[in-house]
């Protein structure tokens, strides 16, 4: 670079430090470029083939195998989840049918109990009814005989009050026949 004004450094650079023609065609520099290029390429090749490329290949393979194993695991978990869902649905259906069975059974039982209670009540009611009927009949009979007696007495009193004479037998017969008719 430090080209003094009147001195030509090489046949490719003029006195002002500028290139004469194309520097690419300057033969003086080619050996230098070729030498350093070969050194550089050898260094790059060694770095790449010894360390960098095997390392990257390993990283990529690791990643691929990790992804594959993760996929397999997720597939397995998915099938497990499906299995769990299936058993859950199964249990739900079982419980549902069990519940409806229990419901039916308890309904039938209740019906039966109700039926027996009703029939028992009916029986009790009919007993009560017949008792009542009997007592009513009794009461009626009593009432009838009381009424007959009262009627006979009243009739005897009326007859005697009217001044007629009548025996008790005739009056009671007459009252009885009147009451019947």
């Amino acid at each position: 670079m430090a080209a003094s004004t009147d001195q030509v450094v090489s046949k490719c650079i003029d006195g002002y430090g500028s290139a004469i023609g194309m520097p690419q065609l300057c033969g003086d520099w080619m050996a230098n470029q070729v030498f350093w290029l070969v050194v550089t390429l050898v260094v790059i090749f060694i770095i790449l083939s010894r360390i960098a490329l095997p390392r990257i290949a390993e990283v990529l393979a690791d990643r691929q195998s990790t992804i594959t194993s993760y996929l397999a695991t997720s597939e397995e978990l998915k099938s497990k989840a499906e299995e769990a869902e299936r058993s859950y649905v199964q249990a739900l259906n079982d419980a549902r049918s069990e519940a409806s069975r229990l419901l039916d059974a308890s309904k039938a039982e209740m019906k039966k109990e109700l039926q027996s209670a009703i029939s028992k009540a009916d029986a009790e009611i009919s007993v009560k009814v017949s008792e009542s009927e009997a007592s009513i009949a009794e009461i009626r009979k009593n009432a009838l005989s009381s009424i007959e007696k009262v009627a006979k007495d009243t009739a005897k009193e009326i007859v005697s009050a009217l001044g007629a004479k009548a025996d008790a037998k005739t009056i009671s017969t007459a009252v009885s026949s009147k009451m019947k008719g």
């Binding site: 670079m1 490719c12 500028s18 290139a19 194309m22 520097p23 003086d28 520099w29 230098n32 030498f35």
Partner: peptide, 22 residues
Amino acid sequence: PMDQFIVEPLFGSGPIYWYTVT
């Protein structure tokens, strides 16, 4: 425009041999 392609020694100035650090 072609001066950017000049090959020159990194240290000092002198002729460029095949082993010169440029």
